[in-house]
Design a protein around this nucleic acid. Structure first.
Length: 108
DNA sequence: GGAAATATATGAT
DNA sequence: ATCATATATTTCC
């Protein structure tokens, strides 16, 4: 089995995010009933199925890209931004260009 | 079992 | 804007 139960939950949530949209760590934490978005980052950074799990659709609550592959900034982060751009999500001045790209988990 | 580390968030300075 | 604290989970020793 891969990772712990918590990680599986985080990755599953990632896979339910539609393309062209992004979700904040806080939103996912709330959806998973987790009181700390930090745990989300920990699970995402150790994701065993990087291409299968759209972990690049997770951003910070300030609409900033956040980080990627264990680095808050670097070539990997740029790759994440490029991937998002390919899905229609564009960042401007370190923040999400269009707020409508923000997605949230179904609360019902 | 305990300490260190982390892709954050929030409050204070 | 920057620093310090809080919180949850993982990984290393």
């Amino acid at each position: 089995m891969n990772g712990t139960e918590f990680q599986r939950r985080v990755w599953a949530a990632c896979r339910m995010i539609p393309a062209g949209k992004v979700v904040t760590y806080a939103e996912m934490a709330q959806f998973l009933d987790c009181g700390s978005p930090r745990a989300i980052g920990q699970a995402l950074r150790r994701n065993p199925d990087a291409p299968a799990t759209p972990c690049h659709r997770i951003i910070s609550s300030k609409l900033s890209p956040g980080g990627y592959s264990g680095e808050e900034a670097g070539p990997e982060l740029e790759k994440k931004l490029t991937l998002l751009a390919g899905e229609g999500v564009v960042f401007r001045d370190g923040q999400l260009s269009e707020i409508q790209r923000l997605w949230q988990f179904p609360r019902d």
